[in-house]
Amino acid sequence: MNPESPEERNGTPVGRRVFLGTLGLGALGVLTAPALQRGLESLAGKDPTGLSGLLPNGGGFRYYSVAASVPDKNATDYRLTIGGLVDHPRAYTLADLRALPQTRLVRDVQCVTGWRVPGTPFEGVRLADLLDAAGVRPTARALRFTCFDGTYTESLTLAQARRPDVLVALRMQDKDIGHDHGGPVRLYVAPMYFYKSAKWLSGITVTDRVRPGYWENLGYDVDAWVGRSNGRTDEPTG
């Protein structure tokens, strides 16, 4: 019904070739991604402008929040409560936490979605010290962490929580932890994927069994060792 010029009907099928070529390039991209990614990361490491931070996998931290909005807490209204199966439940202010012995660790941060930030200093109170001060009862097996974003939760077994590389962190990258990074206080679990390092930490409850946290209820591993969980093979950070 629509008379077309012959070349419009019988020309070369370039469209199909472009379409299939794009699909092929996509598949090739997936196959060569590991090599390409390594190359780009080494290039980005030498970038003095910092512009590469805007590109995919450009390095640095990414902001993830599962809540609609997160209140600001500061030295006057921040509290960290420790309760559950302990002999001495209590609430710490920011000043209380700062007055305790501080530990500084410098490790890589590995996110379960793939990004990794090398050599990031974290500083704070060993979780083991807080547990000792609280007096953990013999029936206790695990910890549940709650956050003042009102939504996020995390968990650790008692043995994991007592590791020397698990901190209630007050400083990151040698600065007080800002709000976007989970400040003023966040958990830092050095040997595990970064979702274990709950931001905006406000409560620690000692429990008789592990109660899976927010992402763990959505399918992520509870024992989230870097390189040995979530089907990933990253270099360990512990």
Binding site: A33, P34, Q37, N57, T113, G231, R232, T233
Partner: peptide, 10 residues
């Protein structure tokens, strides 16, 4: 599992 990172990259 190795495909996840590659797929993310693409």
């Amino acid at each position: 599992l190795v495909w996840r990172t590659a797929a993310t990259f693409v």
